[in-house]
Design a protein around this nucleic acid. Structure first.
Length: 297
RNA sequence: GGCGACAUAGCCAAGUAGUAAGGCAGAAGUCUGCAAAACUUCCAUUCCCCAGUUCAAAUCUGGGUGUCGCCU
Protein backbone atom coordinates (compact mmCIF):
# COMPACT_ATOMS: atom_id res chain seq x y z
CA UNK A 1 0.00 0.00 0.00
CA UNK A 2 1.17 3.50 -0.83
CA UNK A 3 2.42 5.80 1.86
CA UNK A 4 0.93 9.27 1.75
CA UNK A 5 2.49 11.78 4.12
CA UNK A 6 0.32 14.56 5.45
CA UNK A 7 1.94 17.66 6.93
CA UNK A 8 -0.57 19.89 8.62
CA UNK A 9 -0.90 22.28 11.53
CA UNK A 10 -2.14 25.79 12.15
CA UNK A 11 -1.29 28.67 9.89
CA UNK A 12 2.24 30.05 10.29
CA UNK A 13 3.50 26.84 11.84
CA UNK A 14 6.07 26.18 9.09
CA UNK A 15 4.32 23.48 7.06
CA UNK A 16 5.61 24.71 3.72
CA UNK A 17 9.28 24.35 4.55
CA UNK A 18 8.87 21.02 6.30
CA UNK A 19 6.93 19.59 3.38
CA UNK A 20 9.62 20.70 0.93
CA UNK A 21 12.42 19.21 3.01
CA UNK A 22 10.50 15.98 3.36
CA UNK A 23 9.83 15.85 -0.36
CA UNK A 24 13.49 16.34 -1.13
CA UNK A 25 14.50 13.54 1.22
CA UNK A 26 11.88 11.08 0.00
CA UNK A 27 11.77 11.99 -3.65
CA UNK A 28 8.22 13.19 -3.23
CA UNK A 29 5.88 15.75 -4.68
CA UNK A 30 3.64 18.08 -2.76
CA UNK A 31 -0.14 18.19 -2.99
CA UNK A 32 -1.41 21.37 -1.41
CA UNK A 33 -4.34 21.16 0.97
CA UNK A 34 -5.10 24.83 1.19
CA UNK A 35 -8.30 26.54 0.17
CA UNK A 36 -6.61 29.86 -0.60
CA UNK A 37 -3.27 28.93 -2.12
CA UNK A 38 -5.19 27.09 -4.80
CA UNK A 39 -6.12 30.42 -6.39
CA UNK A 40 -4.04 32.30 -8.90
CA UNK A 41 -2.93 35.88 -8.18
CA UNK A 42 -3.34 35.42 -4.45
CA UNK A 43 0.30 34.87 -3.66
CA UNK A 44 1.06 37.21 -0.78
CA UNK A 45 -2.12 37.00 1.27
CA UNK A 46 -2.33 33.23 1.17
CA UNK A 47 1.39 32.96 2.05
CA UNK A 48 2.16 30.73 -0.91
CA UNK A 49 5.56 29.11 -1.17
CA UNK A 50 8.00 31.40 -2.97
CA UNK A 51 8.94 31.01 -6.60
CA UNK A 52 12.19 29.33 -5.55
CA UNK A 53 10.41 26.96 -3.21
CA UNK A 54 7.93 26.00 -5.90
CA UNK A 55 10.84 25.18 -8.20
CA UNK A 56 12.67 23.09 -5.64
CA UNK A 57 10.00 20.41 -5.54
CA UNK A 58 7.01 19.81 -7.76
CA UNK A 59 3.84 21.27 -6.24
CA UNK A 60 0.27 20.41 -7.17
CA UNK A 61 -2.88 22.50 -6.66
CA UNK A 62 -1.20 25.79 -5.99
CA UNK A 63 -2.28 28.75 -8.10
CA UNK A 64 -4.42 26.74 -10.48
CA UNK A 65 -7.88 28.27 -10.05
CA UNK A 66 -9.10 31.72 -11.12
CA UNK A 67 -10.16 33.77 -8.09
CA UNK A 68 -13.45 34.43 -9.85
CA UNK A 69 -14.36 30.77 -9.79
CA UNK A 70 -16.56 29.33 -7.08
CA UNK A 71 -14.29 26.59 -5.97
CA UNK A 72 -15.51 24.02 -3.44
CA UNK A 73 -14.39 20.95 -1.52
CA UNK A 74 -15.94 18.65 -4.06
CA UNK A 75 -13.64 19.91 -6.80
CA UNK A 76 -10.72 19.83 -4.45
CA UNK A 77 -11.42 16.22 -3.59
CA UNK A 78 -11.32 14.97 -7.15
CA UNK A 79 -8.37 17.13 -8.15
CA UNK A 80 -6.32 16.11 -5.15
CA UNK A 81 -7.07 12.41 -5.54
CA UNK A 82 -6.09 12.68 -9.19
CA UNK A 83 -2.86 14.40 -8.24
CA UNK A 84 -2.05 11.73 -5.66
CA UNK A 85 -2.68 8.94 -8.14
CA UNK A 86 -0.61 10.72 -10.75
CA UNK A 87 2.30 11.05 -8.35
CA UNK A 88 2.05 7.43 -7.31
CA UNK A 89 1.86 6.24 -10.90
CA UNK A 90 5.18 7.92 -11.54
CA UNK A 91 6.74 6.13 -8.60
CA UNK A 92 6.99 9.17 -6.37
CA UNK A 93 5.70 9.75 -2.88
CA UNK A 94 2.77 12.12 -2.35
CA UNK A 95 3.09 14.64 0.44
CA UNK A 96 -0.11 16.44 1.31
CA UNK A 97 0.61 19.79 2.92
CA UNK A 98 -1.79 22.39 4.19
CA UNK A 99 -4.18 23.42 6.90
CA UNK A 100 -7.66 23.31 5.44
CA UNK A 101 -9.40 20.77 7.65
CA UNK A 102 -12.42 20.06 5.51
CA UNK A 103 -10.26 19.48 2.45
CA UNK A 104 -8.16 17.06 4.41
CA UNK A 105 -11.28 15.19 5.49
CA UNK A 106 -12.30 14.89 1.86
CA UNK A 107 -9.03 13.06 1.23
CA UNK A 108 -8.96 10.90 4.32
CA UNK A 109 -12.60 9.88 4.10
CA UNK A 110 -14.75 8.78 1.26
CA UNK A 111 -17.03 11.78 1.46
CA UNK A 112 -19.56 11.59 -1.31
CA UNK A 113 -20.03 14.85 -3.16
CA UNK A 114 -21.47 13.27 -6.28
CA UNK A 115 -25.01 14.55 -5.99
CA UNK A 116 -24.36 18.23 -6.24
CA UNK A 117 -27.54 20.22 -6.13
CA UNK A 118 -27.24 22.98 -8.69
CA UNK A 119 -30.11 25.08 -7.59
CA UNK A 120 -29.31 28.72 -7.04
CA UNK A 121 -33.01 29.52 -7.41
CA UNK A 122 -33.95 27.23 -4.58
CA UNK A 123 -31.10 28.59 -2.51
CA UNK A 124 -32.32 32.13 -2.94
CA UNK A 125 -35.76 31.08 -1.78
CA UNK A 126 -34.34 29.38 1.27
CA UNK A 127 -32.12 32.32 2.09
CA UNK A 128 -35.17 34.53 2.08
CA UNK A 129 -36.78 32.44 4.83
CA UNK A 130 -36.23 33.24 8.48
CA UNK A 131 -34.07 31.09 10.71
CA UNK A 132 -36.96 29.68 12.75
CA UNK A 133 -38.97 28.64 9.71
CA UNK A 134 -35.95 27.07 8.07
CA UNK A 135 -35.13 25.03 11.12
CA UNK A 136 -38.72 23.83 11.55
CA UNK A 137 -38.73 22.81 7.91
CA UNK A 138 -35.47 20.90 8.29
CA UNK A 139 -36.97 19.08 11.26
CA UNK A 140 -39.77 17.87 9.01
CA UNK A 141 -37.59 16.58 6.23
CA UNK A 142 -34.43 15.51 8.05
CA UNK A 143 -34.90 15.20 11.79
CA UNK A 144 -31.55 13.53 12.23
CA UNK A 145 -29.67 16.49 10.78
CA UNK A 146 -31.12 18.86 13.37
CA UNK A 147 -29.30 16.91 16.05
CA UNK A 148 -26.00 17.95 14.55
CA UNK A 149 -26.79 21.39 13.20
CA UNK A 150 -27.50 24.33 15.46
CA UNK A 151 -30.52 26.38 14.45
CA UNK A 152 -28.49 29.58 14.20
CA UNK A 153 -26.15 28.07 11.66
CA UNK A 154 -28.19 29.11 8.67
CA UNK A 155 -25.62 28.07 6.10
CA UNK A 156 -25.59 24.49 7.27
CA UNK A 157 -29.34 24.38 7.76
CA UNK A 158 -29.85 25.48 4.17
CA UNK A 159 -27.32 22.97 2.89
CA UNK A 160 -29.02 20.16 4.78
CA UNK A 161 -32.41 21.17 3.40
CA UNK A 162 -31.10 21.28 -0.16
CA UNK A 163 -29.57 17.85 0.23
CA UNK A 164 -32.67 16.34 1.83
CA UNK A 165 -34.96 17.78 -0.83
CA UNK A 166 -32.87 15.99 -3.43
CA UNK A 167 -33.16 12.76 -1.50
CA UNK A 168 -29.51 12.86 -0.59
CA UNK A 169 -29.36 13.71 3.07
CA UNK A 170 -26.14 15.16 4.44
CA UNK A 171 -24.29 12.36 6.12
CA UNK A 172 -22.27 12.70 9.28
CA UNK A 173 -18.59 11.97 8.82
CA UNK A 174 -18.88 8.86 10.99
CA UNK A 175 -20.86 7.23 8.21
CA UNK A 176 -18.02 7.64 5.74
CA UNK A 177 -15.40 5.00 5.25
CA UNK A 178 -11.85 6.16 5.51
CA UNK A 179 -9.51 5.66 2.61
CA UNK A 180 -6.98 3.74 4.61
CA UNK A 181 -7.64 0.68 2.48
CA UNK A 182 -6.17 2.51 -0.48
CA UNK A 183 -3.50 4.68 1.02
CA UNK A 184 -1.45 4.49 4.14
CA UNK A 185 -1.86 8.01 5.46
CA UNK A 186 0.80 9.22 7.85
CA UNK A 187 -0.50 12.28 9.66
CA UNK A 188 1.75 14.90 11.23
CA UNK A 189 0.75 18.20 12.78
CA UNK A 190 3.20 20.90 13.77
CA UNK A 191 2.49 22.06 17.27
CA UNK A 192 3.68 25.36 18.76
CA UNK A 193 3.30 26.91 22.14
CA UNK A 194 0.19 29.02 21.71
CA UNK A 195 1.77 32.34 22.60
CA UNK A 196 4.71 31.79 20.30
CA UNK A 197 2.42 30.81 17.47
CA UNK A 198 0.45 34.02 17.98
CA UNK A 199 3.67 36.03 17.89
CA UNK A 200 4.65 34.34 14.65
CA UNK A 201 1.27 35.16 13.19
CA UNK A 202 1.55 38.81 14.17
CA UNK A 203 5.00 39.16 12.62
CA UNK A 204 3.94 37.32 9.53
CA UNK A 205 1.02 39.64 8.94
CA UNK A 206 3.33 42.64 9.21
CA UNK A 207 5.58 40.96 6.69
CA UNK A 208 2.75 40.30 4.25
CA UNK A 209 1.91 43.99 4.35
CA UNK A 210 5.56 44.86 3.65
CA UNK A 211 5.58 42.44 0.74
CA UNK A 212 2.73 44.36 -0.83
CA UNK A 213 -0.50 42.72 0.24
CA UNK A 214 -2.44 45.94 -0.24
CA UNK A 215 -1.21 46.20 -3.82
CA UNK A 216 -2.10 42.58 -4.51
CA UNK A 217 -5.63 43.04 -3.22
CA UNK A 218 -6.00 46.34 -5.07
CA UNK A 219 -5.20 44.58 -8.34
CA UNK A 220 -7.75 41.88 -7.66
CA UNK A 221 -10.26 44.55 -6.72
CA UNK A 222 -9.61 46.34 -10.02
CA UNK A 223 -10.35 43.10 -11.81
CA UNK A 224 -13.80 43.22 -10.31
CA UNK A 225 -13.39 40.88 -7.38
CA UNK A 226 -15.20 41.84 -4.21
CA UNK A 227 -16.35 40.35 -0.95
CA UNK A 228 -18.99 38.32 -2.79
CA UNK A 229 -16.34 36.07 -4.29
CA UNK A 230 -15.40 33.01 -2.29
CA UNK A 231 -11.73 33.69 -2.84
CA UNK A 232 -12.07 37.13 -1.28
CA UNK A 233 -13.43 35.70 1.96
CA UNK A 234 -9.92 34.70 2.88
CA UNK A 235 -8.30 36.42 5.83
CA UNK A 236 -6.18 39.29 4.61
CA UNK A 237 -8.31 39.78 1.53
CA UNK A 238 -11.65 40.67 3.05
CA UNK A 239 -10.10 43.13 5.48
CA UNK A 240 -7.96 44.87 2.87
CA UNK A 241 -10.96 45.15 0.55
CA UNK A 242 -12.79 46.94 3.31
CA UNK A 243 -9.80 49.20 3.68
CA UNK A 244 -9.79 49.95 -0.06
CA UNK A 245 -13.48 50.67 -0.03
CA UNK A 246 -12.87 53.09 2.79
CA UNK A 247 -14.50 51.36 5.73
CA UNK A 248 -11.27 50.71 7.58
CA UNK A 249 -7.95 52.44 8.05
CA UNK A 250 -4.94 50.36 7.12
CA UNK A 251 -4.08 50.11 10.79
CA UNK A 252 -7.52 48.75 11.65
CA UNK A 253 -7.38 46.30 8.77
CA UNK A 254 -4.01 44.98 9.91
CA UNK A 255 -5.27 44.62 13.46
CA UNK A 256 -8.24 42.60 12.22
CA UNK A 257 -6.10 40.43 9.97
CA UNK A 258 -3.94 39.52 12.94
CA UNK A 259 -6.88 38.80 15.19
CA UNK A 260 -8.75 36.78 12.58
CA UNK A 261 -5.64 34.78 11.76
CA UNK A 262 -5.11 33.99 15.44
CA UNK A 263 -8.69 32.81 15.76
CA UNK A 264 -8.35 30.78 12.61
CA UNK A 265 -5.23 29.06 13.91
CA UNK A 266 -7.09 28.17 17.07
CA UNK A 267 -9.93 26.61 15.09
CA UNK A 268 -7.46 24.65 13.00
CA UNK A 269 -5.88 23.21 16.11
CA UNK A 270 -9.32 22.20 17.38
CA UNK A 271 -10.03 20.51 14.08
CA UNK A 272 -6.79 18.55 13.98
CA UNK A 273 -7.24 17.32 17.54
CA UNK A 274 -10.02 15.11 16.26
CA UNK A 275 -7.75 12.86 14.23
CA UNK A 276 -6.88 9.95 16.46
CA UNK A 277 -3.89 8.82 14.41
CA UNK A 278 -2.33 12.27 14.27
CA UNK A 279 1.27 12.58 15.37
CA UNK A 280 1.84 15.95 16.98
CA UNK A 281 5.33 17.31 16.58
CA UNK A 282 6.36 19.91 19.12
CA UNK A 283 8.17 22.68 17.35
CA UNK A 284 10.16 25.54 18.81
CA UNK A 285 12.14 28.47 17.52
CA UNK A 286 15.66 27.28 16.79
CA UNK A 287 14.47 24.11 15.03
CA UNK A 288 15.02 23.96 11.29
CA UNK A 289 12.74 22.27 8.80
CA UNK A 290 15.41 19.60 8.64
CA UNK A 291 15.25 18.90 12.37
CA UNK A 292 11.53 18.43 12.06
CA UNK A 293 11.81 16.13 9.07
CA UNK A 294 14.18 13.97 11.09
CA UNK A 295 11.49 13.57 13.72
CA UNK A 296 9.14 12.36 11.03
CA UNK A 297 11.45 9.85 9.39
C1' G B 1 -1.56 73.38 49.73
C1' G B 2 -7.01 74.49 47.82
C1' C B 3 -11.18 73.01 44.76
C1' G B 4 -13.55 69.44 41.61
C1' A B 5 -14.31 64.81 39.00
C1' C B 6 -13.62 59.77 38.90
C1' A B 7 -12.50 54.58 40.99
C1' U B 8 -16.80 48.12 38.20
C1' A B 9 -12.95 41.57 34.82
C1' G B 10 -6.56 41.55 31.35
C1' C B 11 -8.66 46.22 28.57
C1' C B 12 -13.03 49.51 27.26
C1' A B 13 -17.62 50.13 29.64
C1' A B 14 -23.38 50.19 31.33
C1' G B 15 -25.84 50.25 35.77
C1' U B 16 -27.25 55.76 40.70
C1' A B 17 -30.85 51.38 46.20
C1' G B 18 -33.91 45.03 44.65
C1' U B 19 -29.22 41.02 44.00
C1' A B 20 -23.43 42.93 38.18
C1' A B 21 -25.60 44.78 30.54
C1' G B 22 -22.53 44.90 26.38
C1' G B 23 -17.92 45.11 23.56
C1' C B 24 -12.70 43.78 22.98
C1' A B 25 -8.93 40.24 24.24
C1' G B 26 -8.80 35.05 25.84
C1' A B 27 -10.41 29.67 26.39
C1' A B 28 -13.16 25.13 24.98
C1' G B 29 -15.88 23.08 21.01
C1' U B 30 -19.20 21.77 16.38
C1' C B 31 -18.45 20.34 11.13
C1' U B 32 -20.19 16.49 3.81
C1' G B 33 -20.47 21.37 -1.37
C1' C B 34 -18.53 29.50 0.43
C1' A B 35 -14.33 25.95 5.38
C1' A B 36 -9.08 31.44 5.79
C1' A B 37 -16.51 29.98 6.08
C1' A B 38 -20.56 29.48 9.42
C1' C B 39 -22.08 28.32 14.27
C1' U B 40 -22.16 26.94 19.90
C1' U B 41 -20.46 27.33 24.94
C1' C B 42 -17.37 29.51 28.87
C1' C B 43 -15.07 33.86 31.10
C1' A B 44 -16.50 39.55 38.12
C1' U B 45 -20.31 34.87 44.42
C1' U B 46 -18.90 40.82 43.42
C1' C B 47 -18.10 46.69 41.92
C1' C B 48 -10.65 50.52 45.55
C1' C B 49 -10.61 50.01 51.32
C1' C B 50 -13.13 50.84 56.20
C1' A B 51 -17.37 52.24 58.91
C1' G B 52 -22.53 53.77 58.83
C1' U B 53 -27.92 54.27 57.04
C1' U B 54 -31.45 50.45 55.17
C1' C B 55 -35.45 44.59 55.12
C1' A B 56 -31.97 45.32 50.94
C1' A B 57 -25.98 49.21 48.91
C1' A B 58 -21.76 48.88 43.05
C1' U B 59 -25.66 52.56 43.83
C1' C B 60 -27.00 56.78 49.75
C1' U B 61 -23.69 59.08 54.03
C1' G B 62 -18.83 59.76 56.51
C1' G B 63 -13.64 58.69 56.55
C1' G B 64 -9.25 56.68 54.11
C1' U B 65 -6.38 55.55 49.67
C1' G B 66 -5.42 56.20 44.52
C1' U B 67 -5.89 58.53 39.58
C1' C B 68 -7.00 62.69 36.61
C1' G B 69 -8.20 67.88 35.87
C1' C B 70 -8.24 72.97 37.40
C1' C B 71 -6.40 76.82 40.82
C1' U B 72 -2.36 78.90 43.93
Amino acid sequence: MVNVYVITGPTASGKTKVAIELAKKLGGEIVSCDSMQIYKKMDIGSAKPTEDELNEVKHHLIGVIEPTENFTVAKYQSMALDAIDDIVSRGKIPIVAGGTGLYLNALLFDMDFAARPDNSKRRNELEAMTGETLYEYLKEIDMEATNRIHKNNTKKVIRAIEAAELGNKVKPLNDCKDRCGLYNFKLYALNWDREKLYERINTRVDKLIELGLVEEVRNLFKEGLNCENISMKGIGYKEIIEHIEGGLTLEEAVYLIKRNTRRFAKRQITWFKRYEDMTWIDVDEPMSANDIVEKIL
